[in-house]
Write a protein that binds this DNA or RNA. Sequence first.
DNA 1: CCAGCTTTGTGAACGTGTGCACGAGTGCCT
DNA 2: AGGCACTCGTGCACACGTTCACAAAGCTGG
Lengths: 267, 267
Amino acid sequence: MPTERPRRRIPEATVARLPVYLRILSEQAEEEVESISSDRLAELAGVNAAKVRKDLSYLGSYGTRGVGYEVAYLVYQIRRELGLTHDWPVVIVGAGNLGQALAGYGGFGERGFPVAGIVDVDPGKVGTVLGGVRVRHIDELSQIVQSKRVNIGVVATPTAAAQDAAERLVRAGVTSILNFAPVVLSVPRSIEVRKVDLAVELQILSYHEQRRATTSTLRSVAGGIGGGPGTNGQVGQVGQVGQGGQGGQGGQVGLGGTAATSRPASA
Amino acid sequence: MPTERPRRRIPEATVARLPVYLRILSEQAEEEVESISSDRLAELAGVNAAKVRKDLSYLGSYGTRGVGYEVAYLVYQIRRELGLTHDWPVVIVGAGNLGQALAGYGGFGERGFPVAGIVDVDPGKVGTVLGGVRVRHIDELSQIVQSKRVNIGVVATPTAAAQDAAERLVRAGVTSILNFAPVVLSVPRSIEVRKVDLAVELQILSYHEQRRATTSTLRSVAGGIGGGPGTNGQVGQVGQVGQGGQGGQGGQVGLGGTAATSRPASA
DNA sequence: CCAGCTTTGTGAACGTGTGCACGAGTGCCT
DNA sequence: AGGCACTCGTGCACACGTTCACAAAGCTGG
């Protein structure tokens, strides 16, 4: 079992699922499970088994036909592919409500993303300690990024300050940004940006709720008793959702978060 | 301009972008902009103009050729389509670090998702007030959901408690869930689930950082001076990323968040 | 060593999403 | 009134992602 070089260029959709597999596999490893089939992994991840196999095939052929995948080895391979063989220190811009919560959330460091620093424009916040890290002034950003070799920045500022925060991060040398502010950041193409937007997520749910209401009304008018057992036993069946999109010349509007609707383990 | 019934069944990818357009359009409306072209909107949203037009066409043909779209009317239509014509009260399960931040974040209510209640299992937390809402015991969940007509639940518990929280929400009558815990929730197919997972987002960024490091190393070996102006002036060009995925029989592993890389307004 | 069972790896079909290119309206200016 | 510049709406081709279905491969028992 040489560290055979995996076929490169993993599809984005797969990259987005690898972390999920990784978490599940790590849990399995802790429970002393040594081998796992694509079927079982798919069940736990709430996806199709073929998808699991195809996803894993991008890492190389590390399964054993008739048996399954060796959990420990798969964990190693995924970690390697995701670049999790070493820590990625992050710097948080904005020590407000969200910044505090992020810093306080220990899961950051545990998962390989130690908080190298938190900065804020407000001198009043500088010096306070959040999650074991002292808040520093934003002017020290470059110094922190450089001395701690930070590649990933987190924008946790109010909306109005987000663009400025992003620009400062880029100037400081950060090459990836996780943006919590509800704005489309304007940064050089070479910078990787991911957005987490609560409002967007809720609005997507709202759309489905609204849709559910509309269609059920229509059905009760057109069909029989509104709300009774439907054709397939499932009433509000909005069913699958997933996501879509791919290449395209950039654009932070790509997609929302992860949609779902399924029942992995416990059927 | 009758309230012409829009063609139904809007693609998920479009649904995920509508909230972004909505925010931008609302901003434009505040700046007294009355009309906007697909080109301008695309620029602000960081997407392709054709995509904007196609997305908006799903709402019906509300543009005027040669002119553009009437901002106010578009705002109205998108809000209508997303079901934002009325509030959607949400209930938060888990008054820990995250639950507190969510409750404290005013943007919730402002954007049409007032916090109808926060519950926690810990009796010690019951009674404390977060963001103007008193924390109540989780046993009161059903009562809250029913009396306040809550359709959307937010899981902000520790990982271990998430599945139980989800089940309680479902039993209480909630039909959509926004999950912040890093687990794949097991719920009936009829329940719409969206996941927001920090670790996943960071790991995706990590993947790209790692990739960037690897490829640039390769390039510096194969090509010229490592890091000098590349073929196209852009060095670490990871370029577009976007997302992918769509139908599929459920599966919360669909995708991560919104990826990006672009520069909307300020070119 | 062979038969039979299991599970991987993947070719191919299908569905979805994106972006170009252009026809079709609309408003403005002369 | 006519021409021109502009912008929408959309057909089409292409790219990407998902799923099926099956051959290949490995294990087990006799």
